[in-house]
């Protein structure tokens, strides 16, 4: 089963994303901050990360850049899920290595579509 790691310091968002992805047939793991997200991704068995940009400790950008630096996680698809919607924020997210960018408030249905699309591209 495809496993998605959801990292967000907002419990509601974690639960909403996890609920929707589980409905769509994915196995979901959750992390409440950047450090836990990095640990979970390094532990392996994760096929895609949905990453909040602003988290305590290690930001989503830091986590993404760190994942790209490490050979074991360099190819791991990352979708940024964030309230920061300015052009510059989106550009910064992609520059850090994100594969896609979803703005909050988000459409759960659209998020699932993007997860499917990013996974499809990663496997192609």
């Amino acid at each position: 089963m495809t496993t998605v790691l959801v990292a967000d310091d907002d419990l509601d968002i974690r639960e909403l994303v996890a609920f929707k992805l589980a409905q769509a047939g994915y196995e979901v793991r959750s992390a409440p901050d950047g450090v836990a997200a990095l640990d979970a991704a390094r532990a392996g068995g994760v096929d895609l990360v949905v990453l909040d940009l602003m988290m305590p400790g290690l930001s989503g950008l830091d986590v993404c850049a760190e994942l790209r630096r490490e050979p074991a996680t360099a190819e791991l698809p990352v979708i940024m899920l964030t309230a920061r919607a300015q052009d510059q924020d989106v550009a910064t997210g992609f520059a850090a290595g994100a594969d896609d960018y979803v703005v909050k408030p988000f459409s759960p249905r659209e998020l699932v579509s993007r997860v499917q699309a990013v996974l499809g591209r990663a496997r192609a």
């Binding site: 907002d10 509601d12 968002i13 909403l16 909050k104 408030p105 988000f106 459409s107 759960p108 249905r109 659209e110």
Partner: peptide, 9 residues
């Protein structure tokens, strides 16, 4: 939860 999702939700 209101304000965190858009669309049908």
């Amino acid at each position: 939860v209101l304000g965190k999702v858009r669309g049908d939700g």
